[in-house]
Each structure stands twice: as C-alpha cells, then as structure tokens.
Design a protein around this nucleic acid. Sequence first.
DNA 1: CAGAATCCCGAAGGATACTG
DNA 2: CAGTATCCTTCGGGATTCTG
Lengths: 124, 124
Amino acid sequence: MAKDNKIEAFKCCPIDYGFKRIGGKYKGRILYYLYEAKVLRYGELSRAVADITTKMLTQSLKELEADGLINREMFPVVPPKVEYSITDRGRKLIPFIKELMEWSLEQMKTENISPIFFSKPQSQ
Amino acid sequence: MAKDNKIEAFKCCPIDYGFKRIGGKYKGRILYYLYEAKVLRYGELSRAVADITTKMLTQSLKELEADGLINREMFPVVPPKVEYSITDRGRKLIPFIKELMEWSLEQMKTENISPIFFSKPQSQ
DNA sequence: CAGAATCCCGAAGGATACTG
DNA sequence: CAGTATCCTTCGGGATTCTG
C-alpha cells in the first residue's frame, strides 16, 4: 500500500493527519450539525447539508464513523430509521471548527459577505 | 463563473469558507512553519515541507498571499531572494491549527503512531 | 535561488437511476 | 426512508523540464 519510499505525511504529521479526517467537502458541516442537533436522521442530515448528494453523504458518514467521530444507530423498523450522533472523540473537534468559523465570519465581514448557515435550526 | 442556480457553500457558509482557505494538502503546514520560524525563504520552505513540489509550493504561497494570510517580500538581488512571513490575519488561524494538532496527537497516540514533524526546528 | 511552463494522472465529487 | 450502483467529469496535485 505504501508506495515504496514515498513520504506519507498524513500518516505521521499531526497537521496532515487532522486535515485528512476532517477535510473533504462536507465533513466539517456534518460534524457541526450533529453537534448542534444532538441527533439527526439520514434524511434530516440530507436536508441540513443542503447541497449534498446521497452518495457523498453516505460516504462521508461512513468515513466519519470509521474514524470514530460519529455514531450510527439503526432501528429495525419499516420504513427504516437510522440515527446519527457525534461521539466524544468527534465533539473534541468542535472547538477547532468553532474557531475556524469565528475566523471565517470575521473575514467575511471585511468582504461584505453575508453568512448563510445551511443548517436548519432545530428550535425556531 | 457561478453555475447558475448552484449553491456555492464555500462563499457563504463560514465552515466551508474557512476550509477552502486553509484546506489543501500543504497550506496548514506552510502557515504553521511560517508561524514558528517567523520568516522563511522559498528554499527553506521547500525543505520544511519536505514532500512538496515547486509547483504546489508556489501555488499554495500565491493563494495564501491572495487571501492575506502571508506576506511576500522580494529583494532585488542576485541571486534572487524572497522571504515569506505570516500576517496578523494568518496568525489568527494558528490557535485553530494548534487545536487540530492536539487532537491529532491524541488520536495518533491511541493508534501507536509516532508523530513526525516535517519542519526543521530553527534552533536545534 | 526562486520560480514558470507543460504534461499527466488519480481521486474526489456530481448526476442519475434503482432497491429493500 | 435510507441507502446502492454506475457512469462521468473535474481538478488537485505529481513529475519533469526550463529560465531570469
């Protein structure tokens, strides 16, 4: 698997390691929405991350679960019901995501960009 | 440029906005090395980010500069000399990067992975 | 020394249709 | 409802060569 003598920074460099797990186009938002809402079903997530396709949502959720950042609970009912929630491990990333958000909001203000959160507030 | 009615989250969603600017394979490390070393020349950066190509280094530096995260100072001498440093705006991202690093180091410990920082410590 | 210029590839992601 | 399965496109990034 390891390409011979190639350095694979994402395996040993802590910065790369982190970005590999939280990077990607949607993982940050998924984690944050789960943090906000406590628990979300597949369909709810699909609506929260407004512009995501089922392929990317499923794939992102699988990777996040494999990395121990979220939990997946399946209920054997008809129609199917699956609930996702953030783990303690995943929750530890929230301060980092919040910090990035704060920074972004600050920068966006200087560019006169109005922020839009794609999450649907669960209490409003 | 904007594809009609397509939602472009990275323009208005603060999470995406941030990841767009700090994401990519090397930007996090570049910023962090510049933060540590205060100022680095092109060649020094090239050695610090051990596995980067000139193409990606140049490209990353340009984008970081365009986003106001780093400074580029050129000295009209022969041979050429160019120094890069982090801006105040870029420095604000450091706590966020550090937090990610902490998290990564913690996870890597549970996986028995020894972290390797590709930066060359400037005082050692 | 500090890049620029090409050519190229693989993986990330998109669109669409289908299923238990 | 909660996904699979395919096919297709884009583009981030790699390798190499060249230049002021």
